[in-house]
Amino acid sequence: MNSLKTQKNVLLITFLFIPVLLLLVFVVYPTLKLLQTSFTSWDGFSEVQQIIGFKNYKDLIFNSKEIWVSLKNNFLYFIIHLGFIPLEIIAAVILNSKLRGMKFFKSVVFMPYIINGVAVAYAFSFFFSPVNGALNEILKMLSLEGWIQNWLSNPSVVNYSLVSVSLWRYSGFHIVLFLAALQSIPEDIIEAAVVDGANAFKRLIFIILPSIKIVVELMLFLNLRGALQVFDIPFVITQGGPGTASSTFALSTIQMAFKYKNFGMASTMGISLIMMIVVFNWVQKNIFGLKEGK
């Protein structure tokens, strides 16, 4: 028996050795290094990294107005995507029904997520173009010239334009995840509810939603993480402009490191991002009553 236990341990260690090693080298070490750099004023170039304590953290909170503006933009992505989650669930419920052509619609809905993000962003910069832009042309065709805006250059409009691109790209992915969760609900539960006289709304609230709670929780986390890390869409379409009107936290971090040569502060921003995701996720779980055991 003892030998069997030893063999088990040997097998366990052998299997775990490489994944743990990879994790240590590529995840744990870089994170610790990031934490270390966040306490320095390193410019990404000098051989010496001068330690400045919590100065970067203090500056980030009290002296970085433009970074707070970026975070405000991230919040817009978060709140609009959050508002769309109920709609995405409803869309998934519709797509889950046995109507004709649903397979085709499922593919169409998922399609934007498959397309390369940079290509999507590039295509939308032409879509919003003031000269020959598809959006303005559509509005003209519908005799809605009065609705035409400077979609990418008006500081009070640009973020909504960008969030709409993000919605177009990610909603399909969310719907497909919800769909997978819906398909995992045993049909007999639904049938029993129907027999008991539950209407579609009651079935949604009392059976479907509690059954897909795990996926909703995952989606809330993905939404939070995605909203705080959004980068490719504003980077390709506006580069954060005009000025810094559409900049996001990730965009500011990249600029801080490579444009303003402040790798120390950029690392601080990286660590803060991790902390924000952890804290906001905990808050979000509490608000929506998704904590384990609830």
Binding site: S125, F126, F128, S129, P130, V131, G133, N150, W151, L152, S153, G241, P242
Partner: peptide
């Protein structure tokens, strides 16, 4: 610079 100089990138205007 036209109606919306900040709405177009250089790739778009150079062809014009």
């Amino acid at each position: 610079f036209g109606t919306d100089p900040l709405g177009m990138g250089f790739d778009q205007v150079k062809a014009m």
